[in-house]
Amino acid sequence: MTTEELKSTLLALLTDVAPDVEPSSVALNADFRDQFDFDSMDQLNFAIAIHKAFNIEIPESDYPKLASLAKCMEYVGNRADKD
């Protein structure tokens, strides 16, 4: 999966969890929480969506590593390689 594919897959998952978020408005480096009031329920739902889409286990302690689009890309990129 290329970086662009990874990014668009993550964006699709994100807007699935938060249909009221405009995909093109998502900044790469800003935390979801600061960008659009992502709350802990959104965060958990997003982690579940990533788990399902990429088939990776995500322990609770790793949730902060999914706080922004860039962090997600790094986390999923690394994890998907190893798993």
Binding site: D20, V21, E22, S24, A27, Q35, F36, D37
Partner: peptide, 16 residues
């Protein structure tokens, strides 16, 4: 293809 962040803020983002 990517709408600029400024345009987003002004017109689109339901989040702000």
């Amino acid at each position: 293809g990517k709408v600029s962040a400024a345009a987003d803020e002004a017109l689109l983002s339901p989040s702000l």
